[in-house]
Design a protein around this nucleic acid. Structure first.
Lengths: 257, 257
DNA sequence: TAGAAAACAGAACGAACGTTCGCTCTACCC
DNA sequence: GGGTAGAGCGAACGTTCGTTCTGTTTTCTA
């Protein structure tokens, strides 16, 4: 356990993202939840859930299982996805799957955990900026970056929350409310200092949050035409367009009159 | 078949809402999809699906079945709701349920149909206003009114679209895209005439639509504290607050600079 | 390289699912 | 007021689900 991401109490320490990040490429360099490291994190943070003991097998199988889960459940939902579907899609036998997890629900739990971790990481880091406006801007950009890289994860949590135990459901709602509150607080203090002008900070904050959700929930909107595999440069352009749209919109909402 | 709502081809004629509606109470007087008439409409528009022939029985049972579906599936989802749950909740036997519908999926189909009808009705009617700004304002208000009265229906369609056949899934997405396009077109023509000012009509339109969705998707946000049974006057106040928030926001987004 | 431990395979299990079937009941018609 | 169509009922059906179990193979270690 040499990483803050790997403890089992699921508290996180100081994030490993450096302060000044201004492009997707740069974000990717610093974002810890990608590739093999992502599944290693899943393994380490869920050692009580994951049955497989050897990290080498566990990480490889978690990747297969979770990827297949995203593929299958994207169209028909988690409930309709049977473990036989999963077995077919992963090429693993029932026994293999159950030597990795112990319940179907575990899959959903692990996904929810990673999304919460990702949200926490990006939000905490955005808070490191010094000016109010930069904090808002960075929060928006980081959230878009992270939810792009982990799109299937964010999407899954949103639509499958109801598969989770009630305590986890409440926690997911709380994360959204915290997001709104965080933006609201920044806007309000900007209003007090005379930097921003609005009579409804709550509404502006809420608008930001729902626009951020829209990004990973509705990739089919022509607003952000989503292809499975496009180059990082193209994706960067897409995100920049959308984040600029949001930022311009917020700027107008917070401008004088 | 004496009403435009009752034909089986599911085309709708001129809506029965009169032009000038400025309060929830007034909207309720004119909105055809309420109370018993709502379930009569379900029956008439789905005569091929509904097995029960006598309207008297069919309407009563559809009300029981659909109400129970909303109650049960709100927390656990449509897939997890078994027909035995439904039997318990409605007090009907399995046989009775199947003498009303012929497949579980039929329930979702009927709900989807009503939501589409409601969207169509409210949008068409809002278009009857003469000024551009009033059209936008009315579209927003009507949508909030309708999605409040039919909140469980709108909520269900959003979250259970994936239970529907693929053609229906595409249709649901199309409705959202049409909604955006409709707002976008009005904003654009306002920009051309100099009435509005924005460089990103699409984004403003999209923002309106996601804020409208937010209303019926997240009743738990303290933004719009949702209690099951509050008086019409209180509900009216709630909606007015929220619609005023949206309208003010849009006004600011379309104002000069 | 022998032996223990872990991972894997897939048949088997009981529960629960959506649906059907044979039957009873009831309201309305001539 | 007997006949009948249709509504209501609930046990039973075949299927599929999540999960378990019993071997077999692979991997690690000494």
């Amino acid at each position: 356990m040499n990483s803050v991401l790997e403890n089992t109490s699921k508290k996180i320490g100081a994030p490993g993202i450096v302060a000044e990040i201004n492009s997707l490429a740069h974000f990717i360099e610093n974002f810890p939840l990608q590739g093999e490291a992502l599944y290693a994190t899943v393994f380490n943070r869920n050692s009580e859930i994951v049955q497989t003991q050897k990290a080498r097998f566990a990480v490889a199988n978690l990747e297969k299982i979770l990827s297949a889960t995203f593929q299958v459940s994207a169209t028909s939902g988690f409930d309709r996805m049977s473990l036989r579907d999963l077995s077919r899609q992963t090429g693993m036998s029932m026994g293999s799957i159950y030597s990795c997890i112990s319940k179907k629900e575990d899959i959903a739990l692990m996904i929810a955990d990673i999304v919460r971790l990702s949200s926490e990481l990006t939000r905490q880091h955005a808070m490191q900026s010094d000016s109010l406006w930069t904090k808002i801007e960075q929060s928006i950009r980081f959230h878009l970056y992270a939810s792009t890289l982990l799109q299937p994860w964010y999407f899954f949590l949103y639509f499958e929350t109801r598969c989770l135990p009630e305590a986890q459901q409440r926690e997911s709602k709380q994360i959204e409310l915290d997001g709104i509150k965080s933006f609201e607080a920044q806007i309000k203090s900007g209003v007090e200092s005379g930097e921003f002008h609005t009579e409804d900070a709550r509404m502006v904050a809420n608008t930001i949050v729902v626009l951020l959700e829209d990004w990973y929930l509705k990739p089919w909107k022509t607003l952000s035409p989503w292809k499975a595999n496009i180059s990082i440069e193209q994706r960067e352009k897409q995100i920049n367009n959308y984040s600029q749209s949001i930022i311009e919109l917020v700027r107008k909402l917070l401008a004088e009159n």
